[in-house]
Computed example of a mutant assay.
Amino acid sequence: MILKRYIILILLASGSLAGFGQLQVQVRGKVFDMTQQVPLVSVSVQSTGGTGTATDSLGRYTIYAKESDSIWFSYLGKGTPKYPIAAIPNQQNFEISLHVNVTELKTIMVKPRNYHLDSIANREEYAKVFNYKKPGLGIVHPNTQNAAVGVDLDQLVDVFNFKKNRRMANFRDRLMAEEKDKYIEHRFSRALVIRLTQLKGADLDTFMVRYKPDIVLVESATDYELQSYIKQCYDRYMKWKEVMGELRKQDN
């Protein structure tokens, strides 16, 4: 019995040691373009264990993964080889340059519109419409004990003013739909799509219409998830363009 317990303890100890070997480690660094001078924004960093992140405005990233995992980088649908974490010499400063040529333009300071302030101003301007509720019958309570309880005549008129009520309800619904569209445009912006896909002109216009997300996705997605969605749509768009090009060749 003592020998059996001793064997069980050894097995438990080995299992614990194996578990410690699977603890997550932190890998951080920067991603540059081919000149090794310009930081790349929104580069996808993923591990074979399923974790992922994206580089920030300075090209920096931090990812947590198991030491037995490998990580790789993806930009505009093009991935790098996988780098085993255990073989990275300095896991706290793993810098990499991608074969991307970034043309730097003169910096122009542009003050963007503030979506939240615009939304608040819109709500204040159309408060009567946003707060509109279908009228109902109100009861007039008399000031004297002998007076009879009656119906508010002004509200009674409003109840039967069907045309006005319908117009106000339609206006309210239209304003709320416009507010949702503005929020979608605020997050799914042309600037963000250009930065992630480099699309321009007619291609950009087609992409913005074809892959515009719905309000549910935009409200629930994190920045990383929204950027991943745009990159996946870009891959689908390029494949669609390739198929359409082949069809045009066959027609000719």
Rank of each mutant, 00 (worst) to 15 (best):
V38Q: 11
G50V: 11
Q26Y: 07
Q36V: 05
Q36K: 08
S44H: 12
G50K: 15
R28N: 08
F32A: 02
V41I: 04
S44Q: 13
G50S: 14
W72C: 10
D33N: 07
A54M: 15
S68F: 13
D33W: 03
G50T: 11
P39G: 01
A54T: 10
K30A: 05
Q36I: 00
T62L: 10
S68D: 12
Y64C: 04
Y61M: 07
G59P: 04
T35P: 05
K66E: 14
S47E: 05
T51D: 14
Q37K: 14
D56H: 04
Q46H: 14
E67L: 15
P39L: 02
V38F: 07
S57E: 11
T48E: 14
L58W: 04
Q36W: 04
A65V: 09
Q36M: 06
R60M: 06
E67P: 08
V41G: 01
S47A: 12
A65Q: 10
T51P: 05
Y61N: 08
Q26E: 11
S57P: 01
Q37A: 15
Y64F: 12
V27N: 07
T62Y: 06
T53V: 09
S47F: 05
Q26M: 12
Q37S: 14
V27H: 08
K66F: 11
P39N: 01
D69E: 13
S70T: 06
R60Y: 06
D69S: 15
G52A: 12
Y64S: 11
G59W: 03
V38Y: 07
S68T: 15
S57Q: 09
G52Q: 12
G50A: 14
T48V: 06
D33P: 03
G29M: 03
